[in-house]
Simulated assay, not measured.
Amino acid sequence: MPTALITGATSGIGRDGAVRLGEQGWHVLVHGRDEAAGAETVARVEDAGGTAAFHGADFADLDAVRAFADTVREAVDGLDALCNNAGLAINDYRESEQGFELHFAVNHLAGYLLTHELVDLLADDGRVVTTTSVAHRNGDLDFEEIRGNGRTGVPGITGAKQLAPLRRLGQATGVTERTGLGGFALYSNSKLCNVLFTTELARRVRDDQRVNCFHPGIIPGSGVGRDLAFPGSLVWESLDLVPGVSDSVADGGAALATLAGDVDANGRYFNKERPARASPSARDEDTATRLWALSADLVGVDANWP
């Protein structure tokens, strides 16, 4: 029976992907913060024909990530798929337990550290799948800000350097605050980190292992925007009402399950289940290597891994 760990599997894309793997006879380690929601995912996986167990952890705390990895090691002898799906999108500026901007901490550093801690459990033909977003195209990384302030850039609607005047205009006019999208730049930056992490890890894993990331679609029902402030939350949820704009949770879950299985691509960015081309900044190998080394330093591990 193949085994998968799916973070952020108590709702949305993660839950749907877990159930799909259950239908294929997988054992699924379900991660999240809500024990009751985790129990619901476990029940759905088992009803689908698989087996499952819930393990809770708050990824806003790197110590909790380390403890979670220890729990996984006690629970299973190996992993056929590690799915870094947990993530958040918020409007206001918040910091993690270790003082990192929360998007950067939860959406990137937690997955980076977890993969470091568990990569030796990965099967010879195992998969690492990371849920990113098309929003990575709106992102950029300020390495001085990361090093000095623990954040990838400054709050605003856009993180892209070439659109900095637009970000400043939005802040000066109050549009950013009124739309509830002040955190979108930092979210976009964290999603860019996901693609760069995939690029670098793919170069480092064993020959038969596969590392890929995917944009799951525009999915208001995924729950990723549950912490957005009004009116940004209203705009996000309203996308479901616009024909041809939004996708379904099932679209994202299907992509996650497919990439966790027998996909031969390595180091690729997918739009749902279709190979796609990431932004130029996401394909920059020097930036990927630099982010890798800095991330290792920030979480306290040797950068020479796996």
Results as ranks from 00 to 15, higher is better:
residue 166 L to K: 01
residue 216 P to Y: 14
residue 168 R to G: 06
residue 167 R to L: 02
residue 233 S to P: 01
residue 223 G to V: 10
residue 182 G to I: 03
residue 87 G to P: 05
residue 154 V to I: 08
residue 304 N to F: 05
residue 184 F to K: 04
residue 195 V to Q: 05
residue 293 A to V: 12
residue 199 T to E: 14
residue 29 L to Y: 00
residue 224 V to F: 10
residue 139 G to P: 12
residue 164 A to R: 14
residue 206 R to I: 00
residue 277 R to G: 08
residue 87 G to R: 01
residue 185 A to L: 07
residue 111 G to A: 14
residue 240 D to F: 02
residue 259 L to H: 14
residue 173 T to V: 02
residue 287 T to Y: 00
residue 68 F to I: 06
residue 221 G to E: 12
residue 167 R to W: 02
residue 283 R to D: 07
residue 217 G to M: 09
residue 117 E to G: 08
residue 136 H to K: 05
residue 25 G to I: 09
residue 81 A to H: 08
residue 214 F to E: 10
residue 79 L to K: 04
residue 53 A to V: 14
residue 245 V to Y: 07
residue 222 S to E: 04
residue 199 T to W: 09
residue 296 A to M: 12
residue 79 L to F: 07
residue 67 A to S: 14
residue 85 N to I: 06
residue 243 P to K: 06
residue 167 R to H: 03
residue 153 G to F: 08
residue 9 A to V: 11
residue 42 V to Y: 10
residue 151 R to Q: 14
residue 238 S to D: 11
residue 33 R to F: 04
residue 212 N to I: 02
residue 203 R to H: 11
residue 13 I to G: 11
residue 109 L to A: 01
residue 188 S to K: 03
residue 114 L to F: 04
residue 54 F to T: 04
residue 148 G to H: 08
residue 252 G to Q: 12
residue 96 S to I: 07
residue 116 H to T: 10
residue 51 T to C: 09
residue 149 N to S: 06
residue 180 G to I: 03
residue 166 L to N: 03
residue 67 A to P: 01
residue 229 A to W: 02
residue 139 G to V: 12
residue 297 D to K: 08
residue 287 T to W: 00
residue 5 L to Q: 11
residue 35 E to I: 03
residue 93 Y to M: 14
residue 203 R to V: 00
residue 73 R to W: 05
residue 1 M to F: 05
residue 238 S to A: 15
residue 38 G to Q: 09
residue 203 R to L: 07
residue 60 A to K: 05
residue 235 V to Y: 12
residue 204 R to Q: 11
residue 122 L to I: 01
residue 120 D to H: 15
residue 35 E to R: 12
residue 239 L to I: 01
residue 227 D to V: 00
residue 26 W to P: 05
residue 230 F to H: 11
residue 142 D to N: 15
residue 19 V to R: 08
residue 35 E to G: 03
residue 66 R to V: 10
residue 57 A to S: 07
residue 55 H to F: 14
residue 14 G to T: 06
residue 232 G to C: 07
residue 82 L to V: 07
residue 221 G to H: 06
residue 127 R to A: 07
residue 105 A to Q: 00
residue 16 D to M: 10
residue 244 G to V: 09
residue 197 F to L: 08
residue 270 F to K: 10
residue 29 L to I: 13
residue 97 E to V: 13
residue 47 D to M: 03
residue 11 S to G: 05
residue 295 S to I: 03
residue 117 E to A: 15
residue 57 A to R: 03
residue 13 I to D: 13
residue 61 D to Q: 08
residue 118 L to C: 06
residue 272 K to D: 00
residue 39 A to K: 11
residue 219 I to R: 11
residue 52 A to D: 10
residue 160 A to P: 06
residue 32 G to T: 10
residue 149 N to R: 13
residue 42 V to T: 12
residue 1 M to R: 12
residue 272 K to Y: 00
residue 116 H to L: 01
residue 215 H to N: 15
residue 245 V to C: 05
